[in-house]
Design a protein around this nucleic acid. Structure first.
Length: 208
DNA sequence: CGTTCGATGCACT
DNA sequence: GTGCATCGAACGT
């Protein structure tokens, strides 16, 4: 069942923690892909220098100032889309970046969209250059998961409680959680606002 | 193992 | 013109 808007209308760190174990679902042309959220990051307010709201309201960051429970999608580094869930309340710009998923449904579709070959049920053993990967890393990293799930600017501002892009509670109980500093930013690194499922193979980066 | 660096487009100053 | 909430190949050790 879909998470209600009230789930998102809370302090962002709470939402970042409780999104671990929930399921991100995207349905496009009747094709469904989904994955268990295993890694998130919180971006909180204009006083957070790493948050896109730091410069104040702009055309790009407008969704952050809108109601909670919507998607904030943006294009980064000329080639990646990143997806967030807007939190808190209208006029209070904050969001949770979804950084990694454990693939659940539509794994074949994810392989195709990533341009990778399936490992045919085997463990990762492909030679370099063969583009073989284990399914567990299909959605490791914020740019990888949007590519695997075909999330782009058309999903910006989508209502996560009732649209093609939703987050569901399927009663999955995550393992131990760890907080660390956020990845890939140059300012605001002192805050430990990255939350991940410890030891999960789909978590991005080196430290799992 | 580790680190560096190029690809690539757009919002913002 | 500058700088990204990235990724992965190509190096160095």
């Amino acid at each position: 069942m879909n998470l209600p808007a009230s789930f998102y209308a809370r302090p962002t760190l709470e939402v970042a923690e409780e999104l671990i174990g929930k399921v991100l679902v995207h349905e496009v042309r009747g094709r469904r892909t989904s994955g268990i959220i295993v890694e998130t990051e919180a971006y909180i307010g204009e006083s957070d220098p790493a948050c896109h709201a730091a410069p104040g309201p702009t055309k790009r960051n407008a969704p952050l100032y809108g109601p909670p429970g919507r998607a904030y999608v943006y294009f980064n580094y000329g080639m990646h889309y990143l997806v967030n869930a807007v939190t808190e309340r209208e006029g209070s710009p904050a969001a949770v970046l979804i950084r990694a998923l454990e693939p659940l449904e539509g794994v074949d579709t994810m392989f195709r969209r990533r341009g990778l070959k399936t490992d045919a049920g085997r463990r990762f053993s492909g030679a370099a250059g063969e583009n073989r990967r284990p399914a567990s890393v299909l959605c490791s990293g914020p740019g990888n998961l949007t590519k695997a799930m075909a999330i782009n600017l058309r999903q910006n501002c989508a209502d996560l409680t009732r649209s093609q892009l939703t987050i569901e509670d399927r009663g999955i109980r995550p393992g131990r959680l760890t907080w660390s500093s956020r990845i890939g930013i140059r300012v605001g690194t002192e805050q430990e606002w990255r939350c991940y499922w410890s030891g999960h193979p789909s978590v991005s980066g080196r430290l799992r």
